[in-house]
């Protein structure tokens, strides 16, 4: 019981920090908004969808993808805060406390996922602006789905944080992991016409299932890639695996 209390304490501290930093909360919504309303507007004209009506609005297609992007960035970033904690010394305060190190890692995964989900929830407020009408059941389905996606993102973030010795390496992670993950997830374009190598990569990318699931829930009249149940099952499997691997990696580095 005491050990799970430690998970809660880590979670509480991260949330306190996050919700105190209003500027960052608003700021991190900047790029998703730019994507939807500028890129979405511009690219929309030249898009042809397979399996949907010809005049299907690209922004509606893109919105769940951008939701996935928000969760991806917020989740990885929240988890990588371990690197900050290490640099500012606070990680040591947690590591010498009479709590096991797995509870610290698990606390970080859950706090990161909570923060990422809350950022996603903020983005949902913009859904009506692209013409998606949200209903309560929809929102109730979207939130846990986003949480599930977030868990795999924060799990991955922790894994990255155990390898990163300083924040300087984060740019590399951004360019070689996060951006490719985003583009190969089907967030911006349909994967049906993608070459074989991209198709393979997309199948091991948790964000692919995340975006597909979010799109299935939000956009009823667009053909999804996989059934919703399959998406959720894949997400659950990948998330569990990432949680376990990241906890082991975190505990081992100490």
């Amino acid at each position: 019981m005491r050990r799970f209390r430690a998970v809660y304490i880590i979670w509480l501290r991260d949330l306190k920090r996050h919700f105190r930093d209003r500027a960052r909360i608003i700021g991190s919504l900047g790029s998703p908004i730019v994507f939807v309303f500028i890129l979405g507007q511009g690219l929309g004209a030249s898009f042809r969808f397979t399996g949907a009506e010809a005049d299907f609005d690209y922004k509606v297609f893109m919105f769940p993808g951008i939701l996935g992007m928000t969760v991806l960035f917020a989740g990885v970033f929240a988890a990588v805060s371990i690197v900050w904690d290490r640099e500012f010394g606070f990680l040591k305060e947690m590591l010498v406390a009479p709590v096991p190190s797995w509870s610290i890692a698990l606390g970080k995964v859950i706090s990161g996922a909570t923060i990422a989900t809350s950022q996603g929830a903020l983005m949902l407020l913009l859904a009506p602006l692209v013409g998606i009408r949200l209903t309560l059941p929809m929102v109730l389905a979207l939130l846990p789905t986003m949480f599930l996606v977030s868990i795999s993102m924060t799990g991955m973030g922790i894994l990255v944080a155990t390898r990163l010795k300083s924040m300087q390496g984060f740019q590399v992670v951004m360019n070689f992991i996060m951006m490719p993950m985003f583009f190969i997830s089907g967030a911006m374009f349909q994967l049906s016409s993608a070459p074989a190598w991209m198709d393979v990569l997309s199948r091991i990318n948790p964000l692919t299932y995340g975006v597909d699931a979010l799109r299935s829930i939000m956009v009823a009249d667009f053909p999804s890639r996989y059934p919703l149940g399959y998406d959720l099952a894949m997400l659950a499997i990948i998330s569990s695996a990432l949680i376990i691997i990241s906890i082991i990696a975190f505990s081992r580095q100490q």
Partner: peptide, 27 residues
């Protein structure tokens, strides 16, 4: 109780919050 060479405080939290966090971790 340990005081390390380099600070290990959470600078974004208040003094009181740092103490409370510690108290929780130490039951």
């Amino acid at each position: 109780g340990i005081v390390f060479q380099d600070p290990t405080l959470d600078e974004q939290l208040t003094a009181r919050e740092n103490l409370q966090f510690h108290a929780m971790l130490y039951n």
